[in-house]
Nucleic acid binder design. Sequence first.
DNA 1: TTTT
DNA 2: TTTT
Lengths: 163, 163, 163, 163
Amino acid sequence: MAGSVNKVILVGNLGADPEIRRLNSGDPVVNMRVATSESWRDRQSGERRERTEWHNVVIFNDNLAKVAEQYLKKGAKVYIEGQLQTRKWQDQQGQDRYTTEVVLQKFRGELQMLDSRGQGEGGGQYNAPAARGSDFGASSPNESQRGGGGGGFSRDLDDEIPF
Amino acid sequence: MAGSVNKVILVGNLGADPEIRRLNSGDPVVNMRVATSESWRDRQSGERRERTEWHNVVIFNDNLAKVAEQYLKKGAKVYIEGQLQTRKWQDQQGQDRYTTEVVLQKFRGELQMLDSRGQGEGGGQYNAPAARGSDFGASSPNESQRGGGGGGFSRDLDDEIPF
Amino acid sequence: MAGSVNKVILVGNLGADPEIRRLNSGDPVVNMRVATSESWRDRQSGERRERTEWHNVVIFNDNLAKVAEQYLKKGAKVYIEGQLQTRKWQDQQGQDRYTTEVVLQKFRGELQMLDSRGQGEGGGQYNAPAARGSDFGASSPNESQRGGGGGGFSRDLDDEIPF
Amino acid sequence: MAGSVNKVILVGNLGADPEIRRLNSGDPVVNMRVATSESWRDRQSGERRERTEWHNVVIFNDNLAKVAEQYLKKGAKVYIEGQLQTRKWQDQQGQDRYTTEVVLQKFRGELQMLDSRGQGEGGGQYNAPAARGSDFGASSPNESQRGGGGGGFSRDLDDEIPF
DNA sequence: TTTT
DNA sequence: TTTT
């Protein structure tokens, strides 16, 4: 289909440390639970109410998976950009079940840490990159030389050129 | 939780005509299935592959529900902005099941028709608003007078001021 | 034009305290400068480079203007959702000049504080809402009662119903 | 700065055919003007009003530049995702001037054609890809094999692997 | 300069 | 079940 867009943008907090698996290829895959929450005052009762939504986030993007593995802990606040995917699986009774996830495919998606250095919350102490200072951008590649013929380019996280 | 964002942006096509229910309050609620799809060439086989994702969209926003009810048909291309919500229900065996939907809450979200007038496709003939011309904006309210003291404002869809 | 979208999403830091003006109507208007920044390693030189982009943000949305006025200070990290607008003005020579801004219109846009409580940075000490705790959502209204007949609804910031 | 996001999402129409330049490197750069527009009914006068906003879009992303060059014409409706950038230049009097653009950097951004095939409008006849059928995805690369060890991957537009 |  |  031409002209399709499937995009999810979340700003929320990790409910637990990320879980890392490895594919046969050696590529890391990260699963994590992210909470978003909104509050409002009930019109009838006047009480303040809050609703928290939990999201299953799966990271196949190698660079972002590494960032998640190294720097994210329970309680960390993150900006996430991925796509919606629903996959089918079977429970023990052989019945079809469906799970919808926010997926960051290989070479796609975005992940940004929104905590200040050493600010870990929520019970877990996570370690923001110290040596790198604030300048590690755990995001997609970027190239900013306007009109530049050469065109510097590199992944942010690691110096190796990943492709 | 301070600083939370839960946003889904879709551009896709309706798989079927929207389904309209009414709440006890009389407010319309629209359910529709939206397909997004992406294609790529398989690196190994060289074959072109395509993956279609289906999204359950639920509209509680009255104005947008009316737009969907009146103008959207099977095949229509739409821009949708909503939030992710997962709700729990029980199947006939009494087991917990979960369904994740893209929800446009009351007074929230956005819906834009992306087809040209009278362009209905995919089997269903849907009728773009003729009499209204281009002026049906199925979106949120807007007010564009910079620095304007008075502040014009109105819902796009209907002239009544809905609140 | 049917089917138009004009949306800007920023996560960045305030370069200075917000400036507040008042319209004749008494409505507050907030101007602020927001920095976003990205870093990458130059492919040629191997040096790390960084580019900071400065954005002019203007808030006509009353509730969000109040939030900015009360809680935002230089250095604060924010999530902002607005629209692009370019306005024309004349310099002292009478020449046409253009300025592009990220505008949060009345009843539109979103603003989220992303700092933890009392975490002020960048030189300014800003005070996150203490009494409100984390539950002040400086965003648009929301209503989360699925299928609810009544429909609780209220602005987050203040209890008054603004329309 | 850790945790920065600078994103613009537009759905609008081209005001003119795209202009293509080439860098010394041979890479194409596309400039185009995109209109977004919103309409509302003035609260005071009851008249319908409309405001059109014009955006300068610049494409450094090679694949997307090629798509723009080949398929986009005046009047075409597009989905665009880029970032805000303001650049400084000097007018003939040597005075500093600033222009803000929506930029799709190398390897970044998104461009989707939202018109149906052969639907060219607005005066210009643009030719949607006929032979290619639906399989021209003018977007970023994607890889959808969940958990797949191999990991198919390819640019959508051309079969060559661009990096 | 687009679109409806 | 859509779209190309």
